[in-house]
């Protein structure tokens, strides 16, 4: 018993030491980004970004500048709309397909897999997509942003792999009880798949949240643009600002603005992730099954 303990302690030291090393490797450069976003203009121009600053030296000028944009609130709202509706739509379309593909006895399953894999491998590029979206009359609507990329083959197949991990016996038992596939998906598969639903949901959400290219292409109205586009424009103008004639709109150097805007975009995810993490505890699944 004693050797067991010793082994366990040694193992934990190894594991946590490794994690600590990883943590440091990640935090150091990241810390730099945070510091950059907080460096006051004068200091930045004098000596660049310092390795450490006391909180009373921090400058929130860059954050202020981003947040004070007239278009900021609107853009944040647009982003929220795109992210929420996009994620909901994506999940609503992905879950049934993933479930269908996880049903090994489904006639046509291989055919469908092949057909969607095909679209995973062949990317027609911008122009063929654009021609479709304009013919459907979707340009200048949110649908142009959320519909074309709604289902990701990668996410579908990953979700399928998890669905396949659910023991067939549970489903079979339900089937014997007279449940149809809809009920099985609804009552058994989904409740057992919360971690993967959240994971895939998060993949989708992050994707929609960061997307800036399709809004630029499909939305003409600047007031419809989401946050990443606005932030890009702010940066672009901070850059052009070097050419600007009269007193700047910018009170912060480009690098500072860049870091601040990136941290601002991270913020919602930073809040969301720990909430999701609650469901990422070991045994969450099986506990539910047993009940």
């Amino acid at each position: 018993m004693k050797t067991k303990w010793r082994e366990e302690i040694g193992f934990q030291i190894l594991v946590n030491g490794f994690l600590l090393a990883v943590l440091i490797a990640i935090v150091v450069p990241l810390w730099r980004v945070v510091m950059t976003s907080l460096t006051p203009l004068d200091l930045y121009n004098k000596s660049g970004v310092p390795a450490f600053m006391w909180p009373w030296d921090w400058s929130f000028a860059a954050y202020k500048q981003v947040l004070q944009q007239q278009l900021f609130l609107g853009a944040a709202l647009n982003s929220a709309v795109i992210t929420i509706s996009g994620t909901a739509l994506s999940l609503a379309l992905t879950v049934p397909l993933a479930y269908a593909l996880s049903t090994r006895s489904l006639p046509g399953r291989n055919l469908i897999t092949t057909l969607i894999l095909f679209t995973f491998l062949f990317h027609p590029g911008l122009i063929p997509d654009y021609l479709l979206v304009t013919r459907l009359g979707l340009q200048n609507t949110v649908l142009a942003i959320i519909l074309p990329p709604a289902v990701s083959v990668y996410n579908t197949l990953v979700m399928r792999a998890f669905f396949e991990g659910i023991p067939e016996e549970i489903k079979e038992a339900a089937r014997i009880d007279g449940a149809n596939d809809l009920q099985i998906l609804w009552r058994i598969v989904l409740p057992l798949s919360v971690p993967i639903l959240l994971t895939i949901g998060m993949f989708y959400a992050v994707w929609f949240w960061n997307e800036f290219f399709t809004p630029i292409i499909y939305l003409n109205d600047l007031t419809m643009q989401p946050l990443p586009v606005l932030l890009r424009n702010i940066l672009m103008s901070a850059r052009l600002n070097e050419y600007l004639e009269y007193d700047a709109y910018t009170v912060s150097p480009v690098a500072t603005l860049q870091s601040a805007s990136v941290l601002l975009t991270m913020l919602p995810m930073l809040i969301l992730y720990p909430m999701i993490q609650r469901y990422f505890t070991r045994g969450a699944l099986i506990g539910a099954v047993k009940e």
Binding site: A88, L89, L91, A92, V95, P96, W186, L190, P191, V194
Partner: peptide, 14 residues
């Protein structure tokens, strides 16, 4: 979990 599922399915219907 059911709430999440409900939302997803409602959307699917929509």
């Amino acid at each position: 979990i059911f709430k999440v599922a409900l939302v997803v399915l409602a959307l699917a219907v929509v």
